[in-house]
Design a protein around this nucleic acid. Structure first.
Length: 861
DNA sequence: GCGGACTGCTTACCT
DNA sequence: ACAGGTAAGCAGTCCGCG
């Protein structure tokens, strides 16, 4: 049967609709829920109310709770009520329902001001459309999402348990672990704002429930290797897979040709349901999904849910019967929480701080391979062409991997998301979709509100400070960054690396850096200068950012890191506290960067450069003190100092100096048996005292280096790992040389596979955006697109080889081993040479001379 | 018209 | 939509050279 006739046939079938979404419990008079976790909030435009989502771990269900306090959205004006009433934007707007005078503190001037609260009937009257108040008048606090505003006003905290009745929400009593209490009490004794700490301790140490969830993945028919259009949704769904925390393992298969039987899938590890009718299959998909309060996808915002939605519409479902809400950048499910892992793993902070850049490309394949050690089912062809059995396996594995990404290490990812939601007080959905500047922004907004500060507008912050003062070292940057010490070339045995514990956040904390405190308006603060700048810092008030970073940092170092190691606690609990301290670290590490990012509402270059300039001063002064102590500084970068053969007692003195002089913690980071430097910065290797190899920045470890060269490089490192004394170096050097020449021989004789000489480079932007130059990988990508008719997208890895042909490159995809004959061996030898030069430079081999020597020898033979 | 010096673009890395 | 600093290769341009 052709696809077209098949579609026609389905249209005449009887109407299938989704089951009614469960009526919310608010209508029940008796509603009484205990220990239910607040996980989300949203605005329901139909009821003109905020809806809260509570997760009950006992029944494993989500309850929707609609506002019953008649809370209204609002913003502020600096004009008085009378003046506002004279404005047509206010007087002729029936959606403005109230004007109230209020007192606020302007954090920039540190003076009380009177403002008018403009109350509206719905959030769109404030902002979000072209005719909203925000676009017409100069108003404050008008771009806070309404449901987040609600949480703040109602003093609600995401991620902790509540007892809920129809018209009352109270925090559940939380029992803190006695060990945690003991450690926390010590810290509480000497902090300036005890209540704030207590609040945080309670929020962060609350238990996290197991979230009942299902991972969901859709496979759709496609003619070519292109992603089907979600808006057209003109191709049938082929399969849907489910993997649930309750053990559900299921694949729904669409039997387009009417040839499938259940027997064909008998020995699978998952159940299979076969559907002749796509419409019933969609209804079944929805039925399964709705049994789970949390739905996990990998890219469900931009593919699975929009496709499902539009396909359902196309097949005749009514809009109001589909419980999916498609936004500009997200897909929400009205009965629960949709978590899109693609967005979460794409997050720069998550990628680097939580997962240490263990994955480079954000794809289900790469991320699972890196974090789970398990990849997708490999297909030789596109999904539309493989056998039903293979398609089912493929789909199932995608669902399974997606689920496992949330369950590995004892539900690490779910916990991480929950803890970040607690810190930022954002919904779980927002946490996994928005970036770190948003997380920090939301918590700062709440802090402003709690202190009754009026949140300044971006232009007010900008107008307050002079432009940046420093010149960046790197072209195209906005201000100066860190100091990198020129390394002393050579091999050094017994090297101790000292570093300042989270230097920038500590500076923000200790030096009171915040947008309102740097260049404050108090005359008496103007002598409190940041070294090397004309900026000064407030002496009268603690800055908001400084307070926030200070608390988070203290709690991490003094409470949660300790708890994570406390042997009196169960392994489970220690693991949990370790996740907490890890989440705190993610936030702390990003706290400086946001000051220099325009996307951040509290963007303020004088604050950013105050941090880096203080850092420069700290490291420079510490190096000077090392000289005084007779310590030999052979290298340093930003917050670290490499000391050659330092006497123990001198190190103690250095630590004391840092504490006394800067109030900062300097500590031993690592100790090298030996470390080898060339003249290059950020470029060295060493062997730690435990025998572990540490390579930094060398070409040999870069992801785009061909395997052949990489292997030779790491083989050499293995040799160097066995070196314990300067004498042993000589033998090792000979071995490294041999590895080099052996590899060169292999290249000359073409004894390699295509895979070994493939160069993998990420395509950074769309092909047509490379306007000034055409780098090699772009040439290869263009060949892929034009010759092989294969669409290439930014973010994709292009694998190519260097050839002797006109263009000099060819893509690997679809090529046979015959391509080896075209390889430009000469250019690979150059690559090998430069890779080894970095290594050999450091250990004192002049590669150029060695090569000439051998060549001369060869020419005689 | 050609080659070396130079600059700018691009990617990947370090802290 | 967190930052700046560094290395390296290649593409493209400029300049000198009878």
């Amino acid at each position: 049967m052709s696809l077209e006739s098949w579609l026609k046939e389905t249209e005449v079938e009887e109407e299938i609709t989704f089951e009614e979404v469960e009526e919310t419990t608010t209508t029940e008079e008796k509603l009484r829920l205990k220990g239910v976790y607040l996980v989300s909030a949203d605005y329901d435009p139909d009821r003109s109310k905020v809806v809260l989502k509570f997760y009950d771990p006992k029944t494993e269900k989500i309850f929707l709770w609609y506002d019953c306090f008649n809370h209204k959205p609002y913003c502020y004006s600096k004009e008085d009520v009378e003046a506002l009433k004279r404005k047509p934007e206010i007087s002729q707007n029936e959606r403005i329902v109230g004007l109230d005078r209020e007192e606020r503190l302007d954090p920039i001037t540190d003076r009380k001001i009177s403002v008018t609260k403009i109350v509206a009937a719905d959030p769109l009257a404030i902002g979000g459309t072209r005719v909203s108040l925000r676009e017409k008048l100069r108003v404050w606090e008008a771009d806070i999402k309404y449901y987040l505003n609600y949480l703040i006003d109602m003093d609600l905290q995401i991620g902790i348990p509540y007892d809920v009745t129809k018209n009352k929400i109270t925090e559940s009593k939380l029992e803190m672990d006695p060990v945690a209490t003991e450690i926390a009490e010590k810290v509480l004794k000497d902090v300036e704002n005890k209540e704030e700490y207590e609040k945080w301790l309670k929020i962060l140490s609350a238990e996290i429930p197991v979230f009942k969830r299902v991972a969901f993945d859709l496979e759709v028919f496609t003619e070519e290797e292109i992603i089907p259009s979600t808006s057209k949704a003109d191709q049938p769904i082929l399969a849907a897979s489910f993997y649930g925390s309750d053990g559900l393992k299921k694949v729904l298969i669409h039997d387009i040709e009417g040839k499938l039987t259940e027997d064909m899938f008998k020995d699978k590890e998952y159940e299979v349901e076969i559907f002749r009718n796509e419409k019933s299959m969609i209804a079944r998909i929805m039925e399964i999904l709705e049994q789970y309060p949390f739905v996990i996808t990998f890219n469900g915002d931009n593919f699975d849910f929009p496709y499902l939605y539009h396909r359902a519409i196309r097949l005749g479902f009514r809009k109001e019967d589909i419980p999916i809400k498609l936004g500009r950048n997200d897909a929400r499910i009205i009965w629960g929480i949709h978590i899109d892992l693609y967005k979460f793993f794409f997050n720069k902070s998550v990628k680097s701080y939580a997962f240490k850049n263990r994955y480079d490309i954000v794809s289900l394949e790469e991320v699972s391979e890196a974090l789970l050690g398990e990849g997708k089912v490999k297909l030789e062809e596109i999904v539309s062409k493989v056998s039903p059995s293979l398609l089912a396996d493929y789909s199932f594995t995608d669902g399974k991997l997606t689920y496992e990404l949330t369950s590995f290490n004892n539900d690490l990812v779910m916990k991480l998301i929950t803890i970040i939601a607690r810190i930022s007080n954002m919904t779980l959905e927002d946490v996994c979709r928005l970036a770190v500047s948003n997380w920090i922004k939301n918590r700062l907004i709440q802090m402003h509100r709690e202190k009754r500060y009026l949140i300044p507008l971006k232009d007010e912050i900008k107008a307050k400070g002079a432009e940046r003062f420093t010149e960046p070292i790197t072209k195209g940057k906005k201000y100066i960054g860190a100091v990198v010490v020129q390394p002393k070339p050579g091999v050094f045995f017994n090297v101790v690396v000292m570093d300042f514990a989270s230097l920038y956040p500590s500076i923000i904390k200790e030096y009171n850096i915040s947008y309102e405190t740097v260049r404050c308006l108090h005359p008496e603060c103007k002598d409190n200068i940041i070294p090397g700048t004309p900026h000064w810092v407030c002496k009268r008030k603690r800055g908001l950012m400084s307070e926030f970073v200070g608390i988070i940092r203290d709690l991490r170092v003094r409470v949660f890191k300790k708890l994570a190691k406390d042997q009196r606690l169960s392994k489970n609990l220690r693991e949990f506290y370790d996740v907490v301290q890890g989440a705190l670290k993610v936030i702390i590490n990003a706290s400086y960067g946001v000051f220099g990012s325009e996307a951040f509402p509290f963007y303020y270059l004088p604050a950013a450069e105050s941090v880096t300039m203080t850092g420069r001063n700290v490291i420079t002064k510490t190096i000077e003190y090392c000289r005084k102590l007779g310590l030999d500084v052979i290298y340093g970068d930003t917050d670290s100092l490499f000391l050659h053969n330092p006497p123990e007692n001198k190190l103690d003195e250095l630590v004391k100096f840092a504490k006394r002089e800067f109030k900062l913690d300097l500590e031993v980071d690592k100790v090298y048996r030996y470390v080898a430097f060339s003249v290059r910065k950020k470029n060295y290797f060493g062997v730690l005292t435990n025998g572990q190899i540490d390579v930094k920045g060398l070409v040999g470890k870069k992801r785009n280096t061909p395997k052949l060269i990489k292997d030779a490089f790491f083989k050499s490192l293995e040799v160097l790992r066995e070196v314990y004394t300067p004498e042993e170096f000589e033998k090792a050097k000979e071995q490294v040389k041999k590895i080099y020449f052996d590899t060169e021989e292999r290249l000359k004789k073409r004894e390699f596979t295509l895979d070994e000489v493939a160069i993998s480079v990420v395509l950074g932007k769309r092909l047509e955006d490379y306007t000034s130059t055409t780098p090699e990988h772009v040439k290869a990508a263009k060949l892929l697109q034009t010759v092989m008719n294969r669409e290439v997208k930014p973010g994709e890895v292009i694998r190519y080889v260097k050839t002797r042909g006109r263009l000099g490159v060819k893509p690997i995809e679809g090529a046979s081993e015959k391509l080896i004959r075209e390889i430009d061996v000469k250019r690979y030898i150059e690559l090998l040479k430069s890779t080894f030069e970095q290594l050999m430079d450091a250990i004192g081999i002049d590669l150029e001379r060695e090569v000439r020597g051998v060549n001369r020898l060869e020419s005689f033979m």
